[in-house]
Nucleic acid binder design. Structure first.
Length: 439
RNA sequence: GUGGGUAUAGCUCAGUUGGUUAGAGCACCAGAUUGUGAUUCUGGGUGUCGGGGGUUCAAGUCCCCUUACUCACCCCA
């Protein structure tokens, strides 16, 4: 052995075999539910200008403050190089909004419904259900402010989980962040309300103390029991919310009810990213307990303008595959039948066996012929004995073995063996392809 | 960034109050009257005991440092 072996970077995985089967199933399920709702796939670059994320997510968001995978721009030095540099996308909404603006859709075709599936990157300490590179499925709809669009987006998220086998305990928790002006007002009254709790002898936890200045809204979803008590009587956003946002929220809930979804008003849902306005929601599966949150999203009516485009409303969500995989494992999902075809693709249909070394070349030629006809064929490359080749054939999961011996080869024939039924027949080599296709 | 746990074969793990040549199961490789899969049988250990230092006659075992993994917090998908 040479040098120390390399290992994958922290928070990443090599996907192969059974894990890859599951990921592929998630991907196809995602694109199916998005496509039937009329959403088009979009593939944006894996990295963008760092400025893009700072602008869209907010300088003070945790993602921007400490979770960005950034690289400096060449030709510049120090802080300027980082400021002008690039960042591996930590989420998908900013990129799609950028693509929307750049593509000139606001003028040509303002209503755009897009989805994406792909890797995202966050530079944080990995733990259960969290990775530095993870796959995400997301949906973004630009150009309409109708509450029915909000509910359509929620419906896609729910459908995704239903297709994966989650039952009707799935629920949608909703809240509203109001419009920008509403949030400004609300943040002021919240600061006033919590001001006395921030005094020296406060019972408030240390985290809340720092949240007070960074993002007051977060005090509301603190999990500390004492803090929850102290949140009693805190001003409600709906008290200061404008009529437009308030009625949008009511319509949104009405639409969800029309879709037959289980809806729960949850004022503690406060998204961490700056761009959310009005609708925010999470899809939960309560049997999962502490990890019941499967997906989050909401409306971002100011984002496109923030990206330099015309004022354009938008709404979307994203699902991380990592927590989804965790949830599926806990629930013994998906059903084996859902994965059967993907698993089948990993197996060869035919395994080629050479009785002795003299037949190996001819066998290889025959196998290649089958492959060119679209039949997957595996065979031995390591000079294994006949017995060992059959062992391999058995282990490979191939339904058929083709066995080439001296006597058959002389007569341009070959043995076709059904591995399950253990039956064999000798057929002409020219008839092999037809025989396999018939079977 | 902060805290806890773990680290022995490809995998899952044993390894006693420190004591001879470090083990098991699974997996893997080869063979069991020369043209056939399971089971069985036989043979094969594939290892820098994460790395470095220390204590000791003696360290996988005790101490220190370090790295990696993992879980939790923060936050989030």
């Amino acid at each position: 052995m040479g040098a120390k072996p390399f290992t994958n970077p922290r928070g990443t995985r090599d996907l192969l075999g059974e894990n890859l089967v599951l990921i592929k199933h998630l991907e196809r399920t995602a694109s199916m539910v998005a496509a039937v709702a009329g959403y088009q796939e979009v593939r944006t670059p894996l990295f963008e200008e760092t400025r893009l994320f700072k602008r869209s997510l907010g300088e003070a968001s945790d993602v921007v403050e400490k979770e960005m995978f950034s690289v400096p721009r060449r030709g510049s030095e120090g802080a300027e190089a980082m400021a002008k540099g690039f960042t591996f996308r930590p989420e998908g909404t900013a990129s799609t909004a950028r693509a929307y603006v750049q593509g000139g859709f606001a003028a040509s075709a303002p209503l755009q419904k897009w989805f994406y599936i792909g890797p995202m990157f966050r530079y944080e300490r990995p733990q259960k259900g969290r990775e530095r590179q993870f796959n995400q499925f997301g949906v973004e709809a630009f150009g309409a402010q109708s509450a029915s669009l909000d509910s359509e987006v929620v419906g896609i998220a729910v459908r995704f989980f239903q297709e994966l086998g989650f039952d009707d305990q799935l629920e949608v928790r909703v809240n509203s962040m109001g419009d920008a002006e509403d949030r400004e007002k609300w943040s002021q009254v919240l600061r006033e309300f919590f001001a006395e709790q921030m005094q020296g002898s406060s019972e408030r936890c240390a985290d809340c103390q720092s949240r007070y200045t960074r993002n007051v809204f977060r005090l509301l979803d603190c999990k500390s029991t004492r803090c929850i008590e102290l949140n009693e009587g805190a001003p409600n956003l709906f008290a200061v919310m404008g009529d437009a946002a308030a009625s949008h929220h009511q319509q949104f809930i009405a639409c969800l009810n029309n879709l037959g979804l289980k809806v729960i008003d949850d004022p503690s849902i406060v998204r961490g990213l700056d761009y959310y306005t009005r609708t925010v929601f999470e899809v939960h599966y309560p049997p999962l307990g502490a990890r019941s949150a499967l997906c989050g999203g909401g409306r971002y009516d100011g984002l496109v303008e923030e990206m330099g485009g015309r004022p354009t409303p938008g709404v979307g969500f994203s699902v991380g595959f990592t927590p989804t995989e965790l949830a599926l494992a806990e629930l013994n999902l998906p059903a084996a039948a859902d994965l059967a075809d993907l698993r089948q693709q990993l197996l060869p249909q035919v395994y080629g066996v050479a009785v002795s070394d003299e037949q190996r070349d001819d066998l290889f030629i025959l196998c290649e012929k089958l492959r060119r006809a679209g039949i997957s064929v595996e065979l031995d490359y390591r000079g294994k004995s006949l017995k060992a080749q059959f062992k391999e054939a058995n282990r490979s999961g191939a339904r058929w073995a083709i066995v080439l011996g001296d006597s058959e080869n002389e007569n341009k024939q070959i043995v076709l063996k059904n591995m399950q039924q253990k039956t064999e027949q000798i057929i002409a080599q020219d008839d092999l392809l037809a025989a396999l296709k018939d079977a």
